[in-house]
């Protein structure tokens, strides 16, 4: 069913960017290919040119940098991230979130860069990465740039990448000492399903119980992952008791814009967003 295309296999990121510049809208980048192959099979995307990155070895790998950041190459597979001791040392939450994406076969093929460029709001990596302050490393015809992940994802299947730009990796700055993080997803159907709602939270709580830092992100309940800033603001600087947590979770649910589907009605999903945000907040604050 897939329409035919011309395949390009650049060896470097620069070559890939040049190919994208040359072919413009007629070209589509393939990283792991799990989503792109399906979308081409189903006729939703019919590119004349596919630029496959599988030979661009500079986009592979996971490393720690001198300032204590974690850098994950765009072509790192979900499985590599799940099993990387560097990732686990930086954020066990991240390793565990990646370990629960779909099935092992998908995790072996799907890549971090491909996942982010796909901009599917129901995917697990974006909320988990937003909670730990991930930045996206971008190269293109212009100067290289680094943007917060929440600024990359602008609409369903839509990113803020300029024409010819390529995600080359993700940088996660060092987390403050004592950061507690959790990723929860609600899977009422099967373990490998897309989440009905997912919530990631990362927090630093002072010795006297005051919330010093907090980031909360929700997946699958909007056109993009949602950074629950109102919920964060409702708790920062306070001592989080049960009442404050419930009120903040209510703020998070108000920020959602779910669509009804086989996983539930919009109202049900909004309720579940509240319930799972409460649970995530309890896990990192209590």
């Amino acid at each position: 069913m897939t329409s035919t295309y011309d395949l390009h296999m650049p060896a470097t990121a620069r070559e890939a960017i040049d190919l994208l510049a040359r072919h413009g809208d007629d070209a589509h980048v393939m990283a792991g290919g799990t989503s792109l192959v399906l979308m081409m099979q189903q006729g939703l995307i019919r590119p004349a040119h596919v630029v496959s990155l599988h030979k661009v070895s500079e986009l592979r790998g996971i490393r720690s940098t001198a300032d204590g950041s974690l850098e994950i190459g765009a072509l790192a597979t979900h499985r590599e991230i799940e099993r990387s001791p560097l990732v686990r040392a930086h954020s066990a939450m991240l390793a565990e979130a990646f370990a629960r994406i779909a099935t092992v076969r998908i995790r072996e093929q799907a890549t971090l860069g491909g996942n982010l460029a796909h901009a599917d709001p129901a995917q697990d990596p974006p909320p988990a990465l937003i909670a730990v302050g991930a930045l996206v490393l971008i190269q293109g015809p212009g100067p290289a740039r680094e943007i917060p992940l929440e600024d990359l994802l602008v609409d369903i299947f839509t990113t803020s990448l300029e024409p010819g730009e390529l995600i080359v990796g993700v940088r996660i700055p060092p987390l403050a000492a004592g950061t507690r993080a959790v990723y929860l997803k609600f899977l009422p159907r099967t373990e490998d399903d897309y989440a009905t709602v997912s919530v990631a939270a990362a927090a630093v709580v002072a010795g006297d119980g005051t919330v010093r830092q907090l980031r909360v992100a929700l997946g699958a309940v909007g056109a993009t992952p949602i950074r629950a800033r109102a919920a964060e603001a409702a708790l920062l600087g306070l001592k989080a008791d049960e009442k404050a947590i419930k009120a903040a979770a209510e703020r998070a649910a108000e920020a959602t814009d779910p669509i009804a589907d086989g996983r539930g009605s919009a109202g049900y999903k909004r309720s579940m967003a509240r319930v799972f945000t409460e649970r995530a907040l309890r896990a990192v604050l209590a």
């Binding site: 395949l7 290919g33 496959s52 072996e108 093929q109």
Partner: peptide, 12 residues
């Protein structure tokens, strides 16, 4: 590496 043959382009 365990993969789904239905999702993997042959060129890979």
């Amino acid at each position: 590496v365990l993969l789904s043959a239905c999702l993997l382009p042959a060129f890979r």
